[in-house]
Design a protein around this nucleic acid. Structure first.
Lengths: 198, 198, 198, 198
DNA sequence: AATGAATGAGTATTCATTCAT
DNA sequence: CATGAATGAATACTCATTCAT
């Protein structure tokens, strides 16, 4: 087994090639050969760093969802009005989408896998909980400060996440027709309007 | 070539078997053999009614989304307050989900395919438009009747759809943790609160 | 899975092709493709009748050793002097060798496998016991009739088997140098000389 | 190219590792990696001392059978009754077996190879001749001294070798069931009984 | 001399599709 | 119309061998 430094570099190299190829052809239709070519390595080298194609998919599953999480907490904990911070989160989500847009079909296949494999489902479930927790706290903060009316913070957090995820789903079907950034901001404004104290 | 009546029956028979198997094992992992066994037909018979596995998938794509659409217009056009009708729609959506829940991973795989295949994407895009149109009209009606404040009806329709689709996505990841029906109603109420005239 | 009649025929067809190829190239160097070509079937057909290459090897293991056993009991139970029957058995063994000579290297590989795999070892061990039992009875009969002196029948049976097996091993190394039939008969005579009452 | 002294040491080191691994996993299933690990060398180093895996197998073939031969002549030429010397040889054979028992499956694979490769067969054939020669002389001596009756010395030598080789084969299949040393001695006694003058 | 990362030819196995019956 | 035995293209994975360091 190769040294740690090289290993890490190669794994990253392979994962990047895998994202690109999986996104283009799908999890199944992508051949190890495709990943090898894209990564600039040989087919054999892939197996020096990952035990199997499934291992690559698993690693990708973890990496991809970890990427998405970055920043959520930072913004949730930052200064300013809760409304402002929710909008900042929305914009951050938009930035992530720009960066991960190519990987979107991979996410969808992962969700399909999650539905069938309890282990994967568990994993994704936890990721969402990690979103939802800080988000609910943020809403709670808004209620405490008098910015929002007395709602169930957890309920709202779920709604917020569902809204953005759903919008992303619609964007996948019609990327040109839906200007995600603007639509998301508008939708979140609509939601915030319902939260505001009258 | 089989007669039309029998043909139609057999095609339905095959499609139902396909849904069940695709849902359980995924589009790719499902073998023609599986569909044959489930449908009670022989492997060869499958090819009498569909040219290929892809043809079955295509037919399913059309059928599945057509199923989902039933009822949307009926409710949109019915009597009562717009708010009431939106809630009725939400409940109808919940009923659909109950019926189609097993097929959920298939939808996800279809979305992934849509991202890659313009023809499929087009098809799905149109389906959503058919939701969105009547929905936007409904919102418009609500504004006209003074029930809602002056918002962009199309924007709200999109938000509503995104909300429910997103919630469905979260449900896929955590079917037991998320009571779709209750959560959806709560989320829609939140949205309606933001629409109401103050 | 194909019907029983056809299945049996195909399995035999495959096994015969496998013997021929395994003998020629060895267990490992023989490719499924080789067996397919030799049997006149396609590569895929092989898998209709056997789960894997290993399954073919296992089936062969059982078949090959079963072939070798046929007749042993019949002769052991027949009429005549014990000495005569032991010589008849030796000749039968020689006939078997003629028939199975091509498969000899396969036997050797099987023995090597047996040494490492308890299950295979067990199987072969039982086969030998099935030889040894009737043989020991035969010797016992010879002692009872006064033909042989009082020896341990089981010991002698083992010696007899070892003698013929060992001769076969030497024949494998030098098939032209060793006229198995004559050598075996001479060797058995030597052994019988030691058993005779003085 | 390594210096001669080191080279010889390394080659021995590699060969010992190879015996151990080949015996455990078989000629084919043993990977160069296994031999490298077992020998404490690197995979690359193996190729400094042997051209290929086949070269290691060839070297082993020569070494292993050479080991087995040691002592045969010495005992054959020593003092004492011929019967006593034959029994001593049997015991020496037993000692060898103890030492080489782990390598037994390798021998079997070598025999299988011998059947297919004339060069290997030739080599093994000569080894056996080197046993058989001194052994036949020994028998001849016994006849001359009046210990044995007038038999074909060569025939008896072959029988003796076959007996011990055959017993070894049976031991491979059932190492615990067959106490080689005792069984061999008994079998040889049986044979000697047939040789003795009446 | 020695290393071990990299290579890529080689192979068992699967499964959509065909077609003789 | 229906069957299911047969086909063979396609692909993940292994491992002997090489070679830059």
């Amino acid at each position: 087994m190769p040294s740690d430094d090289l290993s890490e570099e190669r794994q990253k190299q392979i994962l990047e090639a895998a994202v690109s190829q999986f996104a283009k052809h799908g999890l199944h239709a992508t051949r190890m050969e495709d990943i090898a070519r894209e990564s600039g390595l040989s087919k054999g080298a892939l197996y020096l760093y990952y035990q199997s194609k499934d291992a690559i998919i698993s690693a990708l599953l973890r990496t991809l969802f970890a990427w998405e999480l970055r920043g959520t907490r930072a913004i949730a904990r930052s200064e300013g009005s809760v409304t402002g911070r929710l909008l900042a989160l929305t914009r951050m989500f938009a930035d992530e989408l720009d960066r991960l847009s190519v990987a979107m079909p991979i996410f969808l296949e992962f969700y399909a896998i999650a539905f069938r494999q309890p282990a994967v489902r568990e994993h994704l479930g936890k990721m969402y909980d990690e979103y939802r927790g800080p988000l609910a706290s943020l809403i709670q903060e808004g209620i405490a400060s008098g910015e929002f009316r007395a709602v169930d913070p957890d309920e709202v957090a779920l709604t917020w996440i569902a809204l953005l995820e759903g919008l992303t789903l619609l964007w996948v079907v019609n990327p040109r027709g839906i200007a995600w950034r603007e639509r998301a901001e508008a939708a979140v404004h609509l939601l915030l309007d319902g939260l505001r104290v009258r």
